[in-house]
Design a binder for these strands. Structure first.
Lengths: 220, 220
DNA sequence: AGATGTGAATGAGTTCACAGCT
DNA sequence: AGCTGTGAACTCATTCACATCT
């Protein structure tokens, strides 16, 4: 029976996906506050900022140790440090893009290094016409080289922006090459080993959601 | 006191956002099945397809009337019809894109009409350099014209793909022009009236989530 | 006083188990 | 027999209320 790692260097206990997303939002807001020169903030103020309840925020924050000072609030810098560490944003997070069509190129271009900890270090494609062409700072590489690319760059995160039909195949190549975290933009539910961290960004789902609401508005 | 509309033409009862997303996924899968010539399907089979539990699927489906036949399963075509109607996918859903940078252009290009019910009918921007240029079938129009564009096209859904700093402002222009459903790609929590249907596609949140997992993998 | 941290209560969402139809 | 539809059990998430610290 496998034993749980008893001592992570930092006590980052079980975090639910929902909590994790909220932490991202908090972090962004905290960065903004820091830019504005704010050093201390209360759960009440944070709650007003994005409309969430103050107790929820306190619960979320409390999970990572006693970060606040009773009667005063939270130290903005301290929270930021804690969460930057939690996400590993102090190191550069290297990202590869598989599928250099319109969307892939746009994303590669967007995360060319300026935007925070994430940096796209390679873009790959199967299409011989695209291979060798430059997108921003990158030169599109053939998908066959993925293993080498991953090894050489040390990339750990992959964006999957290929057409639906080739998504499963491309995904498997990424995993085989050592990528363990994938953000999938293709409108398919990929069949993945549970050890792989897979998230989907599915535009059609969002659009259909909005269409549903537009529909129900119309009937009022 | 406002009264709830007592009789929607079709009984589409309270649907939670989570359910709605699942319905989208079911619908996609059902379309695929129909293409393959499958006419009858059980909750068990669907459950295996995307790994969800069969009772959950039954609950989801049952919410829209007795769509199944006990002992046999569900009629694929019937389900599709029901959900197409639910989302209003039988009519063309017109979409405008505000912010014709890399991402906006990529999205506009992608939904140029071929892909299902959603069709981008206009792309707008503030940048004088972009205005007038062609992206696929569209000509980029000035944001000032948004009200006219919305009126003339009858667009109901908007994609917001401007930089963070101008997101709130652009959003308000969209709403003022009559758009009531917005998919926001800018990394901000927009301040919106609750009557507006707002969904966020926030890449940074997803990337940070993946970074977190990469981090915790490393510590094992 | 003022704001955090947390056990208890509530609520939402999912699974279970089985009754009911074909 | 097989599979749907659904009330009851259960789990997870959020809110409430309050003890605790500065």
């Amino acid at each position: 029976m496998p034993q749980k790692p008893p001592k992570p260097t930092v006590p980052s206990p079980d975090v639910s996906p929902l909590q994790l997303n909220r932490i991202s939002i908090y972090l962004r807001c905290l960065n903004r506050l820091q830019e504005e020169g704010v050093e201390q903030v209360s759960s009440k103020v944070l709650a007003a900022r994005f409309n969430l309840s103050a107790p929820l925020i306190r619960k979320d924050l409390a999970q990572f140790g006693e970060l606040g000072i009773r009667g005063h609030g939270y130290d903005v810098g301290k929270l930021i440090d804690r969460f930057v560490e939690l996400f590993g944003l102090d190191r550069e997070q290297k990202v590869i893009v598989v599928g250099m069509g319109k969307l892939g190129s746009a994303l590669a271009d967007h995360f060319d290094g300026s935007h925070g900890a994430f940096r796209v270090v390679a873009g790959l494609d199967t299409d011989p016409e695209k291979i060798g062409s430059s997108i921003g700072l990158l030169v599109v590489q053939p998908i066959q080289d993925i293993e080498t690319v991953v090894k050489q760059t040390g990339a750990e995160i992959g964006l999957l922006t290929v057409p639906r039909a080739s998504a499963q195949d491309s995904f498997e190549r990424m995993v085989a090459a050592g990528i363990r975290s994938v953000l999938n933009f293709a409108p398919v539910r990929l069949d993945a080993d549970p050890s792989i961290h897979l998230r989907n960004v599915d535009l059609r789902i969002h659009l259909e959601e909005l269409a549903f609401f537009a529909q129900s508005d119309r009937q009022e």
